[in-house]
Amino acid sequence: MKTHGAVLILSTVVLLAGCASSRDQLLASSKSQVALRSIQSRAFDTTDRERALRTVVATLQDLGFLIEQASLPLGSVTGSKQGKISGFYTLRMTVSVQPRGATQLLVRANAQYNIQEVVEPEPYQQFFAAFSRAMFLDAQQID
């Protein structure tokens, strides 16, 4: 039993040593950039950037976020939401709105749940569903 314990400890150490340094989190992303961008972005048939940004603010507020920062010239809004599910959680989200061609806007959202990047498509689908309803415009998937 003693040797078993030693082997287990040793293999755990080896397994953990194989992990990347926590510094590598700086450039780490859990999905391919292309896949993530398509999950996080939608195109809308409008060029009214200010209205889109104001609608982002209103949508985030409706979803229970507190706006932390926003910039019209840069076209970005950041908000955070806190809740309790077994423990406290903090969900943070930045949404940016940029022109896409001459007739469209590209809206991109990226979210962080506690200390993790949100890479599942569903939360973004829910956000864009609420946003496009408030914009009275369809969200178009981009390639």
Partner: peptide, 8 residues
């Protein structure tokens, strides 16, 4: 833990 389904 994963993001709760109702969060958004």
């Amino acid at each position: 833990g994963e993001i709760p389904k109702e969060a958004l």
